[in-house]
Design a protein around this nucleic acid. Sequence first.
DNA 1: TCTGGGGTCCTAGGACCC
DNA 2: TCTGGGGTCCTAGGACCC
Length: 419
Amino acid sequence: MYALVDAVAFYASAEKVFNPALRTKPVVVLTNNDGCICAVCPIARRLNIPKFQPYFKVKHLLAKHNVVICSSNYELYADLSDKMMNIISRFCDNQYVYSIDESFLHFNGFTPLINDWHQYGQLIRRTVWRETKLPVGVGFGPTPTLAKAANHAAKKLSGFNGVAVIDNEQSRTTILAAMDVGDVWGVGRRLTKKLKLLNINSALDLAQQSPSHIKRLFSVVLARTVDELNGRPTLNWHDVQHNKREVFSTRSFANRLTCPIALKTALVSHAMIVARKLRAQHCVTKRLLLFIASSPHEQHYAKKSLIYELPTPSADSTIFANAVTAIFEQLYQVGVRYYKCGVGALEVSAAQFQQHDLFNQKTDNIKLMSCLDAVNKRYGADTLTLASQQQTNQWHMKRTFLSPHYTTRWHHLPKIACC
DNA sequence: TCTGGGGTCCTAGGACCC
DNA sequence: TCTGGGGTCCTAGGACCC
């Protein structure tokens, strides 16, 4: 049995944790630079506030309904996520954290101990709420895709109260019949359109197709989804939690940038983040992709990217920073109003399988990197940085509606007044 | 006045080579 | 009048997810 546990409008709910006055109000959270709406709490959803719309386009709508607007407070969300994931992990023997607010659970040894999945799901919800004040939804199913579908039902369909279980033919068909095909995991806008032309409208319609037919018309990936919807697992636990094959860090700037020093500083910071992410999944990369670009919404879109081949596969921040220095001149053009930049690791592989190169002594300084990671884990992500990250901070993002750092700054702690 | 997210994976099409 | 291969690598853009 699999489960998918995720938070309801996680970022918006996180804002309500330390500010209970918000709990009865409509709340939205904006993406970086206050660009788009990325989380809409249930109260705001009932007011038809759309997700992923540019903020400036829906400003009037938000004002009309007195919606509370928050900038993204990633430090807060990351901390609350850690706490939530920790609690959830107590309820299974296998947890895979799929995103900041979602985790898949797999029950092996636990299964014989659980006789009622509904009750068990409610226990998870109650415990997470009691210890974090975050609302979560829980879906159980015999495959990851069905657990996702059950989770969708738990949160979106009436009568489920936050927990849904697919454990027999009747529960499977009931839930899939009530689910739009576009809400199936892996079916996006484009596929939805094509499927609906074929009169495949619900998740159940898709499940009733023959996998080989779907494979011919679409792809092997969608054929697997059909199998999964029928309770035939095609993704095993190992597939669900595979390492990333590409790792990126990119950001748009608060204001357009023309200064080369600021751009280079931003790129070095992204290189550091990529290196840290790689080390966290015990991987290295052979090639780094660096890019800088103007805004795609402007008339003259200018994007330039270059690939830097590393002499040996690496996840060393200092080696990555040197790569940025080595090719920055080729990337930068005078006169472009830069909007975004980023660094990506391509051809990612497991660090343990690396061949050592006799002739290349420039290998990762593993001790130094472990020390860097340990210090930053203990004292906050940017405690130890490279000198080249410190030259300017003019590329940092705009967060007009930022809430206090309740969990990472002493002087932001909520105060309780006694009278 | 101006403003439009970030991450990962996949694929089609072109360049290049033999 | 019709006809000209196959493999690899690279890249940009798109699909999908949250």
